[in-house]
């Protein structure tokens, strides 16, 4: 049976791939395109480890069908650092040890970046609600929330 041909943009680069109609974007990212930064924690929208942006909107890539991204703009965790230059959120997560096993971290970073782009000065409550769909089994969340708040403060200072 014939596969679908999809042309899209991932982290600013044009990308083409073949997929089945019912494959998820997460599946294509990881298993067709080798972009394994996005993780599969659940496959059902609960954990947020697969978070990406689709035309600038934060979504779970496990709940988007691959053919849906024809002609759209995707960003993944792989697009976050510029070469060797880490994004301030990535740097802060390292400095503040806001991760342990790291499975949730790509999704948390993608989600936190989307928050700071919309709201450069979030309250702790804003951060906690925004990240409620990013489950972390290790950190207890506190270090994650603090790292996001500190990054926001740094970025406001630098702006």
């Amino acid at each position: 049976m014939s596969k679908l041909h999809v042309t899209t943009s991932i982290n600013g680069e044009p990308v083409e791939f073949l997929c089945e109609a019912d494959q998820s974007v997460l599946d294509v990212l990881r298993n067709t395109l080798g972009l394994t930064g996005s993780k599969e924690g659940c496959g059902t929208g609960d954990c947020g480890a697969c978070s990406i942006t689709l035309d600038g909107r934060l979504v779970c890539s496990c709940l988007v069908l691959a053919p849906e991204i024809e002609g759209r703009q995707i960003t993944t965790i792989e697009g976050m650092a510029q070469g060797d230059h880490l994004h301030p959120l990535q740097q802060k997560f390292l400095e503040m040890a806001a991760l342990q096993c790291g499975i949730c971290t790509p999704g948390v970073l993608v989600a936190a970046k989307a928050l700071l782009e919309r709201n450069p000065d979030p309250s702790e409550t804003d951060v906690r609600y925004w990240l409620a769909g990013n489950l972390c089994r290790c950190t207890g969340y506190d270090k994650i929330v603090r790292a996001v708040l500190e990054t926001a403060a740094d970025m406001r200072g630098a702006a």
Binding site: L58, L63, A114
Partner: peptide, 9 residues
């Protein structure tokens, strides 16, 4: 309905 991610869809 759901998380920020779910709200996106």
């Amino acid at each position: 309905i759901g998380s920020t991610q779910v709200q996106g869809r």
